[in-house]
Structures are given as structure tokens and as C-alpha cells.
Design a protein around this nucleic acid. Structure first.
Lengths: 133, 133
DNA sequence: AACTAAATTGTAATTATTACAAATCTGTTT
DNA sequence: AAACAGATTTGTAATAATTACAATTTAGTT
């Protein structure tokens, strides 16, 4: 599925900027920050504003086409992969690794039938292989 | 276990400020922010500085006597309950609820024996009972 | 009492994010 | 093709959480 299709499917009107951000998210599953996205796209779209990146990602998140990650104290991070998976953050190098072998979480939390769950995020913290040696 | 014992057990030299913060965390399992802690303790300790709260919580977290929660976009939140449990945040009222009925997570992630896991945090997001009616 | 190291304080700096008004763009109607 | 309306983007300024840091205070030891 390409960027344009994805936007339309999620009721997002495409624009040059939105397509560029979506395209970036679909080719960089590195959980980028706003700054990283801005720095990467800015040369090709010289008029691009960082506010647009904030607006765009905020819209994308509302429409469920990207995931907001709160795993990093410093910056918001975003994930173009919205399928169910967890994340691991290395305390030393800061790298964030996808963890795919998760059982699908329950939609209802046992013992809390009164809560309506929209989203589940699991964050592991520790040391990656490169930082252990 | 009282505040003094806990600090000593975690190799933290007690001081008036540290004891006050620890005491607060042991009597307020509300996942407070730095500001909330500061505002609550400030009247009794008029010379208290907000920097001290930051320093103290940072030390407490390193020593494993409180948990840092990244569930709230705006502020850091802290939990004096370091036993294994998950958290739920209501999108509407912002309340954070403890979820205790979790199976103990594995120390090793299946498929990633190379990662050293120090911590696992699970954050649920959705709507609480009061905000659903 | 003097000394040393640690802890606390207060102010200033940093920085991510948001608010907002002006400018630009898109699509539609006349 | 011009005019218009609404949405989008932009740039700047404001906000606010956190950190840096130097000065002061405190606690413990000689």
C-alpha cells in the first residue's frame, strides 16, 4: 500500500507535505522524531515548516495511520507500522527496536470490564547487543 | 516498610527533603507529577526547591525505589509502587489507573535473547468508567 | 572549631511543543 | 478566467517542562 492510498483510506486529504511525511514513515521504520523527519524532508521541500510536521503527525495519529511512541523521555517518536508490536529502548545508545513476537493483547483487561481500551503500548528498557559487549 | 527504611535499603542517604518526598510517594499512589509533589510539600518545607524534587526523583528512580512513567505526554509521572503492574490512562479526564492483574512478564523476550531487559512498562489508553457515561 | 564532601537552592538556559495570525493553496461557483 | 470559501501551510512568538550550574547550606569527621 502506498502513501496516497493510505491517506485516502484514513480520510486524510493528501497534500504535498502530507504525502512526503507519509512516504517518509513508510520507508523509515526507525521511530523518527519530528526533527529527524523535518531535517530529512526540508531540502526537497524548502518551504516546509516544522509546525507542519507537528500538525501532520498529530492528524496522522488521530486517524490511526501512525503510532505515537512515548518510550523516549526527550522527544515524541512516531511509528509508521501500526500493527501490534512492542518496543525496546537501549538505555545506552538510545536505539529503539521493534518486538514482534507478542501475543495479541486482550481488548478487555481482566478485572476491569468498565474500561474502554483504545490502545496498548509495551515498552521494554535495557541494553542492546552492541551495548552489552 | 516506612520511608526511612526504604531509603536506607536502596542506599540513599536520608535527608529532610528525601524523606518528605519518599513519604509522599508512599502515601499518594496517584502517579504524581513533579509539580504536584512540590506544591504539596512546599508549605511544610518553605525552603524547598523544585530542582530538589527533580534531583530526588531522579536519584530514587536510579536506585529503583520509584518508577518513572512515560504514559503522560505533558509531564513525567512517578509511582511509589515498584511491584509489577500496568497502567491505564483515560484520554478524557487524564486519570491514571493501576492494573494489577498482569502475568509477570518474561525477563527474556522470546526471539531476542541478545537483549538485556531491565524494565517493562505496559500502558493502556482509552476511556474510564466516569468518562464513558 | 575547622574541614570536606554531599545536598540543596535559585536562577538562568535549553528545548520540545503549542498557539495563532497571516499567507498560500485547492476546488468550486459564477 | 475571476472570485470566493475553506482548508492547509507557514513563521513567529509564547508556553512550559526539564536541565545546567554556581553559590549556599548542611552533615559528618577530624
Amino acid at each position: 500500500m502506498d502513501a496516497l492510498e493510505l491517506l485516502i483510506k484514513h480520510d486524510i486529504k493528501p497534500s504535498v507535505q502530507r504525502l512526503a511525511v507519509m512516504e517518509y514513515m513508510l520507508t523509515h521504520f526507525t521511530h523518527p522524531t519530528v526533527d529527524e523527519i523535518y531535517s530529512s524532508l526540508s531540502p526537497a521541500i524548502p518551504t516546509l515548516s516544522k509546525t507542519t510536521i507537528y500538525n501532520t503527525l498529530s492528524l496522522f495519529e488521530e486517524q490511526g495511520v501512525v503510532l505515537y511512541l512515548g518510550i523516549d523521555k526527550k522527544n515524541a517518536r512516531f511509528d509508521g507500522n501500526t500493527s501490534h508490536h512492542a518496543h525496546f529502548r537501549c538505555k545506552k545508545c538510545g536505539k529503539i527496536i521493534d518486538i514482534f513476537n507478542q501475543k495479541q493483547e486482550d481488548i478487555v483487561i481482566e478485572g476491569h470490564p468498565e474500561l474502554i481500551i483504545d490502545e496498548v503500548q509495551t515498552y521494554y528498557t535495557g541494553y542492546c547487543k552492541a551495548c552489552t559487549n
